[in-house]
């Protein structure tokens, strides 16, 4: 019994260390939340602001302008549901931006902002998108790098 309990708790520890995992084997890289921030880059990856800009504008990936405005030329139609992205790089540090992209609902539970790096606790997900996050870790880091450049 005692041994079984130890094995069980060990298994839980291992799972936690591996990050979220599910039946299909998809997994998220682990991260640590401190206050309203995830200070360390996901997987230690470094982001590329140029790629990040593409993801922010890409309607099939970030699609950020559906809800936010951003200081981007050639984009006449911009959303007004979320706060403007202009100046976000001055208002928030990289870790704070990272957590807001990963799962804004950890900061404000009733937020309208989708979680871009989460697979748990979602309901009736389209089979084409099931068991994988909306964006991968590299895409999150690229977006963090780009949004940090929006300082004005």
């Amino acid at each position: 019994m005692r041994l079984g309990g130890k094995l069980l708790s060990g298994a839980f520890w291992l799972l936690a260390a591996l990050g979220s995992q599910n039946a299909s084997g998809a997994e998220l890289l682990p991260y640590t939340v401190r206050n309203d921030s995830v200070p360390a880059p996901l997987g230690g990856l470094s982001g590329d602001p140029r790629r990040g800009r593409d993801i922010v504008l890409d309607r099939r990936r970030g699609n950020c302008l559906i809800c936010h405005s951003a200081p981007v030329a050639g984009e006449p139609f911009q959303g007004e549901l979320g706060p403007p992205l202009a100046g976000v790089g001055s208002r928030l540090d990289a870790g704070q931006i990272r957590l807001r992209l990963i799962d804004q609902s950890r900061i404000s539970p009733r937020t309208i902002m989708p979680p871009y790096y989460r697979i748990e606790g979602l309901r009736d997900v389209d089979p084409a998108y099931r068991d994988r996050p909306a964006l991968d870790a590299q895409e999150i880091e690229d977006m963090v790098a780009y949004l940090r450049t929006l300082t004005d």
């Binding site: 309208i112 979602l122 997900v125 389209d126 909306a134």
Partner: peptide
């Protein structure tokens, strides 16, 4: 109720 990968309810929009 929230649904889908984007985790939105009808009411939120």
């Amino acid at each position: 109720r929230r649904q889908g990968q984007l985790n939105l309810s009808c009411a939120q929009c």
